[in-house]
Design a protein around this nucleic acid. Sequence first.
DNA 1: CTTGAGTCTATAGCCGGCTAGAGGGTTTAG
DNA 2: CTAAACCCTCTAGCCGGCTATAGACTCAAG
Lengths: 171, 171
Amino acid sequence: MQDHKTMTQESGKGIGLKIGAIAKQTGVSVGALRYYETLGLIYSERGDNGYRYYAPEMVHQVQFIKQAQTLGFSLEDIGEILTVHQRGDIPCGFVQKLLQEKIQQLEAQIQEMTSFKATLENYRDHWATTDFQPKPGEICPLIETLNQPELTRVDANHSKPIADGQREWGC
Amino acid sequence: MQDHKTMTQESGKGIGLKIGAIAKQTGVSVGALRYYETLGLIYSERGDNGYRYYAPEMVHQVQFIKQAQTLGFSLEDIGEILTVHQRGDIPCGFVQKLLQEKIQQLEAQIQEMTSFKATLENYRDHWATTDFQPKPGEICPLIETLNQPELTRVDANHSKPIADGQREWGC
DNA sequence: CTTGAGTCTATAGCCGGCTAGAGGGTTTAG
DNA sequence: CTAAACCCTCTAGCCGGCTATAGACTCAAG
């Protein structure tokens, strides 16, 4: 016995669940559900009143979508998974392939960000030991002197900075 | 002696540089320059023809914007830096503060992504040792069994997975 | 004088995953 | 019966940093 409201909506005329019932049971907003339908992730039958009526299995399908999102899958990915499923095939192999791709993308992004962070730390540490006084026409010598090759080429080697002595950070 | 075309545009009536000249000298598109102007990052005087005429210093200012972008600063950040500069203050301290914030945000993102990646790897490795056969009504048991607490709580401890034996991945 | 290159404004679109609102019709609880 | 709660479609907006049109004007070279 769920709650009263849900019950009446579920039974009603035996056609199916209205969109609000799906929303309540899944925690996904009505707007999002309509959006999923435009993407073909879920589907419904329409009553004479124009209302969407969903088969009870759609609750599960929406939960599946939510779950897949927590794994970082895009709605497009999820659409492909569901397409495989609806062809009658088992999408697990495909899901594993997608997951492996996600992991690799993540790895690449992490590397990129780590390297970038090292570059920024490099700048920060270098700047921390420098006095600044913009030359006429300069905005911020910190940024404007970045073209110096030793600074721009560092790339994740932040242990031993730059500072070869005689650079004219003359500001 | 730059090239001929640029020369004529630069001199002209002595009013300033037209937008195309700025674009050529900085490598920033005309559209982007107009966009910067709507954000207040650069400014121009208008001729009687309605054209923008830029002071030569604007070339430098646009290069500054580009350079600051390579450090990960948003155009909004850059606008604030330029505001400080145009007040007559030296923005270096402010820039250092912003940079430090960027580094910390980056660090937080990297940690988050690393942890997330570990979770995904955990799933992947667990799934690699499992046979899949969806139960009736299931779409992909890989995804649908994620609610099991040992799997969802892993968090960056990917060395010793889960698999306590008797789980009914009965599919 | 003509033609092509440059400039102007204003608007729409992109990426993803929605949310919010207007302006209607329908259903349901009391 | 009535009012609230629900449902519908269509449109616009968000985030950032632009790009890409359309339609009109101006300028420079031959």
